[in-house]
Design a protein around this nucleic acid. Structure first.
Length: 922
RNA sequence: GGGUGAUUAGCUCAGUUGGGAGAGCAUCGCCCUUACAAGGCGAGGGUCACUGGUUCGAGCCCAGUAUCACCCA
């Protein structure tokens, strides 16, 4: 292995090998299946931090299960992302001064396909850089032929059952995109506006009433004024009419208990065609639905001529001015209101009356609710189930038609009389309905909501409606890994469609992860200028390039200066290259359940250092084992040292810990357990303990034992780490595996380590604990007393029990090397010991003679500090034990444990007090 | 207005049958000891948001309050 750890070279090398060798494909036809469907990213999109996080989790699960011997499929693919993709291409046309209408439907769609070919590979390339291991040979796109026929099949069947219908309803209309959007695609945000109080004169001339509205322009479509039936102020007006100002229409005053007595004046103007609540009220009272807007949200010719053609906000100004002129504007009060905007266009959404296609979801929702209730599908963490139920219980019919061009065109045809025929294609429609060639048919111009095709993703990618072997084997999938933001868009709809069309749940578990935020907890967004590109973290980026990237092509260019400034401040030296493994480890260790994660570069740096540590530890092991006998020949005698037995024991414990954490989707805890074992135990202690055995004249069997353990524990550790950090572990494993008697081609397909309880040697763990205490005790004195690390020390021991004597005999070499000791002498009689600093190992005293090394006052201070600590503990424990309630009610085990601790502390304090006194007398 | 989650060391976060407050980073001291200075060895640092309750015992359970975030209306 290279002396220097350079992630880039090993990453590209290994990824190509893996993919070329076909390692990502399902390998074990006879084994149990494990499958995950990737949430398909936008085909023309690029990888953001959320993807990188999610993909790390999925790839870790996939690699883990593949190594565990399952027949493992990670299904990749991309989504056509109707509106989003169409918008990108429309923007490109706009730059040339063109609209999609200038091109026409076919030409425009052709342009989008061109754009898809051009930019479609970006995100899959980036996925590869992340080390993701999906079966690329099975890559799918939501507009592939196979998936498109699944879409038609589902549409036709639902229509046959009456679960898809066409209707004129009030929808969320995006006046910029000229399409309906679903409730979920509308984001309501608080904005400052006004509450206009307008006078509506009574037709009989007996006065006026005052209505309050946030949208004065909609008055052109008013069909009534409503008051609360119990409102005493207006009882006498119910049943009368008013004459609508500026329009002259006579409209009734009605009573409806929807009206809020407290809001505004208690009188509400009713515009059934332009407000969802008014729409319902209009239906209750049989009011006419008068649409006053064009598809651009300008005033149409239903309104008085004066206002026709005005944009809604122009019309508002004019209407306010006109009312003021007529003295009909009573009051204008500032008011905070919720403004609905389209999540793509950011345009203010207009409730608008149009013909649309709907899915009747109530019947589909019931089994979908049951599947979660009865445990067929399990959310991780569980609390998301509440959110799911809340939404599913209040679910509204799903508007699935979109007035755009990019997507699955609705398989419905119309004849000249407006009759609708649904079928898989025109031929089928003609055939089924006996429509001769002379009858002209035209296909519906609308396309389906993108989420309609992604709702079928788990089974359409496996070949449904055909009964393919893949569908048979890999459906239902094992787990869905997703963010909470698309539980309703996608997850719920997949469950409904999956149950309906395959008769089984689409996945058994749903792992819901949090959002990736910046280190301040802010959402990452282009407009905030705090976006990090995962690829930049892997490869590094110069400050100037980062600034350019963050300020280029902004929607609000005025923010650029501020963003540049904060970027220069936060990343004065740019971003260093951390490598894929470090970024993956960072994501894994931040992936605790149930909360968003703040991405902190400092953590990434820490885990890059971890990779470096692993690299160097491997190099050290190789230096000491390559070309030596590592015990591959099992017939040769092997002697295992205390350290060998200890690290092997600890390895088993870590293995079962990691297994437990993976089963619970606690990637953070798994990562931490592996980090700590690798660094704090294997590197800091075991490698150091192995040195004296390899360097001093121990027996061949002992050296063989230690080399064998060195290599085998490392080889196992690499396999344990592989699902999280695939590249460095593969590179290291290639060199280490043969020395451990392994002959596979790739770590990817090796077995995941499993704990062997019989290898846990508790005696070795206890003995090594003693060794560590001894060494740490000496190191502390050395450090606190400012003794040079290079100075070898003389130590004296007193108060040894049998264990101490035996363990000292076994472990002199460890103690001398790791604590840098010149000599260890056991005192028969402590009374003639020279003045010394003392460390306690249980009841044994480790004495370091002070002469010429240690200052008397310093040692007294050190002892006093230790004593204070002990006194505090003793006070706390004896207080507890003197509490009759505690002794009587706490479990015996707990009480015994506390007694033991108290007595240990008392002995220790006693020893230190004696020592303190002795030194003081000098 | 309804719901969910959060509040633990300077920062980012762990801490599930309630029983001695932890990690990484940052800080301080010593050390270039031939795997690693992206390192080694040590050290300091917290009324676990607040108030009350349950309990022999609460970071953990219950009730309430505050602040923040998100979802829904």
């Amino acid at each position: 292995m290279e002396k220097h750890f350079d992630p880039n070279t090993i990453e590209t090398k290994w990824y190509q090998t893996w993919e070329n060798q076909g390692y990502f494909k399902p390998q074990k036809p006879d084994a149990d299946p494990y499958s995950i469907m990737i949430p398909p990213p936008n085909v023309t999109g690029s990888l953001h931090m959320g993807h990188a996080f999610q993909d790390t989790i999925m790839d870790t699960l996939i690699r883990y299960n593949r190594m565990k011997g399952n027949d493992t499929l990670w299904q990749p693919g991309t989504d056509h992302a109707g509106i989003a993709t169409q918008m990108v291409v429309e923007r490109q046309l706009a730059a040339q001064g063109l609209t999609r209408h200038d091109l026409g439907r076919d030409k425009f769609i052709e342009k989008i396909w061109e754009w898809k070919e051009e930019s479609g590979g970006t995100i899959t390339k980036q996925l590869r850089r992340m080390g993701a291991s999906p079966d690329w040979s099975r890559e799918r796109f939501t507009m592939d032929d196979g998936l498109s026929s699944a879409v038609k099949e589902v549409f036709v069947k639902l229509h046959e059952e009456g679960l898809i219908y066409r209707g004129k309803r009030l929808v969320n209309w995006d006046p910029i995109l000229h399409t309906a959007v679903s409730d979920l695609e509308v984001i309501s945000e608080e904005e400052q506006g006004n509450l206009w109080h307008m006078r509506y004169p009574l037709t009989d001339g007996s006065g006026h009433l005052v209505v309050a509205t946030t949208r004065p322009e909609t008055m052109l479509g008013d069909q009534a004024v409503a008051v609360h039936p119990d409102d005493e102020r207006y009882q006498h007006l119910i049943g009368k009419t008013i004459t609508l100002p500026l329009v002259g229409r006579e409209i009734p005053i009605i009573a409806d208990d929807y009206v809020d007595l407290e809001f505004g004046t208690g009188c509400v103007k009713i515009t059934p065609a332009h407000d969802f609540n008014d729409y319902d009220m209009g239906k209750r009272h049989n009011l006419p639905m008068l649409n006053i807007f064009t598809i651009d949200a300008a005033i149409n010719d239903e309104a008085p001529e004066k206002y026709q053609g005005l944009d809604r906000y122009e019309a508002r100004k004019q209407i306010i001015a006109d009312l003021e002129e007529l003295s009909l504007m009573e009051d204008i009060k500032p008011h905070t209101l919720m403004v609905p905007r389209g999540d793509r266009s950011h345009a203010v959404i207009e409730p608008f009356l149009t013909d649309q296609w709907y899915v009747a979801v109530e019947e589909l929702a019931k089994p979908a609710i049951d599947a979660v209730k009865n445990g067929d599908i399990e959310f991780v963490p569980k609390n998301w189930e509440n959110t799911y139920f809340e939404w599913m219980n209040n679910i509204q019919d799903w508007c699935i038609s979109r007035q755009i061009w990019w997507g699955h065109r609705i398989p419905a045809w119309y004849d000249k009389d407006g009759n609708v025929y649904v079928g898989r294609d025109e031929a089928e429609v003609r055939d089924k309905n006996n429509l001769g060639a002379d009858i002209e048919l035209s296909q519906d111009n609308d396309v389906l909501d993108t989420w309609f095709s992604s709702a079928l993703w788990t089974f359409s990618t496996l070949g449904w409606p055909q009964k393919t072997p893949e569908l048979e084997k890999f459906h239902p999938t094992s787990v869905l890994v997703t963010g909470f933001d698309i539980i309703f868009f996608w997850v719920a709809r997949m469950i409904m469609m999956g149950l309906k069309f395959t008769g089984e749940v689409p996945f058994k578990q749903i792992y819901v992860h949090g959002l990736v935020r910046d280190s301040e907890g802010q959402k990452m967004s282009k407009s905030k200028g705090n976006v990090l590109d995962p690829i930049d973290l892997i490869d590094g980026i110069e400050l100037e390039d980062l600034v350019k990237k963050r300020t280029y092509g902004m929607m609000q260019p005025e923010k650029a200066a501020k963003i540049e400034k904060s970027t220069r401040k936060q990343f004065a030296d740019g971003i260093p290259a951390f490598g894929t493994d470090a970024i993956r480890f960072t994501f894994a260790s931040l992936a605790s359940t149930g909360r968003d994660i703040r991405f902190d570069l400092n953590r990434a740096e820490g885990y890059r250092n971890f990779c470096n540590k692993l690299w160097n530890a491997t190099r050290y092991v190789l230096m000491n084992t390559e070309g030596f006998d590592t015990g591959v020949d099992e017939s040769l005698e092997v002697e295992l040292s205390l350290a060998d037995r200890w690290i092997t024991s600890r390895l088993q414990e870590v293995e079962s810990e990691v297994e437990k954490h993976f089963a619970a989707y606690r990637f953070d805890l798994a990562a931490t357990a592996l980090y700590e074992f690798t660094w704090n135990e294997y590197c800091d202690w075991y490698l150091e303990l192995a040195k004296p055995i390899l360097n001093k004249d121990s027996s061949d069997a002992a050296k063989r034992g230690t080399r064998k353990t060195l290599v085998r524990v490392l080889e196992t550790l690499l396999r344990l780490l592989h699902p999280i950090i695939p590249f460095i572990t593969e590179e290291a494993w290639q060199a280490v595996a043969p020395l451990a008697g392994k002959s596979g081609n790739t770590i990817m397909l090796e077995a995941y380590p499993q704990a062997d309880e019989s290898k846990i040697d508790t005696a070795a763990i206890a003995e090594l604990e003693w060794v560590k205490q001894f060494i740490v005790g000496v190191r502390k004195i050395r450090s606190e007393m400012d003794i040079a690390p290079s100075k070898a020390l003389e130590v004296l021991l007193a108060g040894l029990n049998e264990n101490d004597q035996a363990w000292l005999k076994n472990n002199r070499v460890y103690l001398q090397t790791l604590a840098k000791l010149e000599n260890i002498t056991v005192l028969e009689d402590e009374t003639n010991a020279p003045e010394s600093a003392v460390a306690l190992v249980g009841e044994m005293k480790v004495l370091i003679p002070m002469a010429g090394l240690i200052d008397k006052d310093a040692e007294l201070a050190r002892l006093a500090k230790e004593m204070t600590k002990l006194q505090g503990e003793i006070k706390r424990l004896s207080g507890k034990l003197n509490n009759a309630g505690f002794v009587a009610k706490a479990p015996e085990e707990v009480v015994a444990n506390e007694r033991k601790k108290l007595s240990d502390y008392e002995t220790a304090l006693n020893n230190l007090e004696g020592q303190h006194e002795k030194i003081q007398q000098l």
